[in-house]
Design a protein around this nucleic acid. Sequence first.
DNA 1: TAGATTGTTAATCGATTAACAATC
DNA 2: TAGATTGTTAATCGATTAACAATC
Lengths: 221, 221
Amino acid sequence: MPDPAVIPRAVIQRMSLYLRQLERLDRDGVETISSAQLGEAIGASSAQVRKDLDYFGQFGQRGIGYNVATLTRALRSILALEGEWRVALVGAGNIGRALATARILRERGFRIVALFDSDPRKEACTWAGLRVQPMGDLKRVCREQHITVGIIAVPSDAAQSVAEQLVEAGVRGILNFAPVRLNVPAGVEVSDVDLASQLQQLAFLLGGRRGEQHQSVIRSP
Amino acid sequence: MPDPAVIPRAVIQRMSLYLRQLERLDRDGVETISSAQLGEAIGASSAQVRKDLDYFGQFGQRGIGYNVATLTRALRSILALEGEWRVALVGAGNIGRALATARILRERGFRIVALFDSDPRKEACTWAGLRVQPMGDLKRVCREQHITVGIIAVPSDAAQSVAEQLVEAGVRGILNFAPVRLNVPAGVEVSDVDLASQLQQLAFLLGGRRGEQHQSVIRSP
DNA sequence: TAGATTGTTAATCGATTAACAATC
DNA sequence: TAGATTGTTAATCGATTAACAATC
């Protein structure tokens, strides 16, 4: 088992994918799975799976594989997903509404418990049973509600300020939809969702191909 | 200049971040930028910036730096962003509506030109001037409209089928919001948006810290 | 026992950083 | 010229894969 202090981001990312797969298997009543099968499901090699798990301990039985229920519980514990994370969502725009209404986050352990927007006209809105609150209340509400995760879904030029207010309010993890790099103090974690960047990467991979009529630039191979 | 056939995904990702920064600088009237400044802006080293650009050619002037306008145009061309990519959005749910209504994608070169949903009741809807169309029309419309990129915003169990229909309709790049791994033929590129996974990674990084009262699991250091 | 599969080390592969000659 | 900064190679670092003894 390697030094647990230095676990690569890529490993953590795969851990969450393993967990998702394991939860599915568990629901389907599968009892045992091998590293080869688990890897196959998420697009990794069996060696990769075993190495990843090795960062955290020994979970399998030689000759047999891994017990799905046991490993599921272990990964939930490792990823700190026992219990529920309480989330504040800032920005009552299109994305904000989609996230507040969607149940996928709740099902995976993240519960949005407060909405904020700087526009007073938005305060009339109630989404998924939550009233949109003014930014001035952010600090107090986050403290009262024991909120430790924030989602930033505001325009780019407001994002840094919102990040600072969230950190000031005790938030330690931020999911950021604004296409800017946030400056946060050490100990605060930021994860960016950058859809335009992802689409641009797709564009590169597709090269000049955009339908016969509209072809314009073709990368040399 | 290294072999251009094998460009790491990480390089492409940074290229799109460089471009975003350059577009901002260009708008602000900045004429020249060094690799150190450009790296600083996106959180990379100057060597990294120079190495990344080196995959595609020579764009700078020794002793001076890079001309912002020139480099911006070069990156747009490299990322195949001259002109507009035509996009089909499948799934008229929360996320679908947010994406259809948001203008950020359009501003960055991606135009949603058709919406689809399998639920006939959704066909009454018109978002951002686009009527929701039945899945049966997907193939015909994608062909007619020269659509080469698709966005999947449907429930997990429908995602693979939608992917297949999109590929069948000529789509070559897919942005996938469903938390499943899509199987697509070679030559089709998939980019996943997995918000729950991103939040779970944050949860791990935050360890057991979830507000004093609610602390439950703490990872050993 | 024989076959299967883990845990773990060593080898390989790839990506980042350091360094510096070229040159504006 | 002197200072700055690129383009590019070599050195370092880190992550993935291969291999295999341990063992169910």
